Computed example of a mutant assay.
Amino acid sequence: MADPARARRLAKRISEIVASAIEYEIKDPRLAGVTITDSKVTNDLHDATLYYTVLGKSLTEEPDYDGVAAALAKATGVLRSKVGAELGVRFTPTLAFARDTVPDAANRMEELLARARAADEDLARVRQGAKHAGESDPYRQDGVGGASGELEDERDPEDTVDGD
């Protein structure tokens, strides 16, 4: 079993090599805007999973995730050869690519928080100038006695536990 620290170092180096190769060496136009965000290597150092995200050409345009996945699948052999040549380890790990969903989840959370802030602002606007209904102290009793308004001597003398 390999050292987990070594697996982390190897994963970091693999992500650097693959990111550099995608940017400078692979000439597939579908890979424009692809960013390697994270990588994980199994403890036996035989498999590496690389997480990627795709930046769209504009904010309104949705990136072509299927095209990027196909381009990465096509370039996997070349990228693995490049990783093997630069790492110098006995066994070159197999490469698998997975789309990183963290940016999508972060955008969704931002949208939900914006909706919650808008709802809070609407509620604050409605509450402004509002008064409580009824008296200021609704639990105040005019009589002398307990919460039910009974006097002490009207209680059942045998009931000493809970006052019922």
Score class of each variant (00 low, 15 high):
1 M>I: 06
3 D>Q: 06
11 A>G: 15
12 K>H: 13
13 R>A: 13
18 V>K: 03
18 V>P: 09
18 V>E: 00
23 E>Y: 11
25 E>M: 00
26 I>G: 01
29 P>S: 05
35 T>D: 05
35 T>K: 13
35 T>R: 13
36 I>L: 15
38 D>C: 01
41 V>L: 10
44 D>H: 10
45 L>T: 05
47 D>R: 15
48 A>H: 04
50 L>V: 06
54 V>F: 11
54 V>Y: 01
56 G>W: 05
56 G>R: 09
58 S>V: 01
60 T>G: 14
65 Y>P: 00
68 V>Q: 10
69 A>T: 05
71 A>T: 01
71 A>V: 01
71 A>W: 08
72 L>P: 10
72 L>C: 08
74 K>V: 02
76 T>A: 14
77 G>H: 03
81 S>D: 12
85 A>T: 11
89 V>M: 13
90 R>A: 11
91 F>K: 09
94 T>D: 14
94 T>Y: 07
95 L>F: 13
99 R>F: 07
101 T>M: 13
104 D>V: 01
105 A>S: 05
105 A>V: 02
106 A>C: 01
108 R>N: 03
110 E>F: 04
111 E>M: 07
114 A>G: 07
118 A>G: 06
118 A>H: 12
122 D>H: 12
126 V>A: 15
129 G>L: 04
129 G>I: 01
129 G>C: 05
130 A>H: 07
131 K>I: 02
132 H>E: 01
132 H>Y: 08
132 H>N: 05
134 G>C: 02
140 R>I: 02
145 G>C: 05
147 A>R: 15
149 G>L: 01
155 R>M: 03
157 P>E: 12
158 E>F: 15
158 E>C: 00
160 T>D: 06
162 D>T: 14
163 G>K: 13
164 D>E: 13
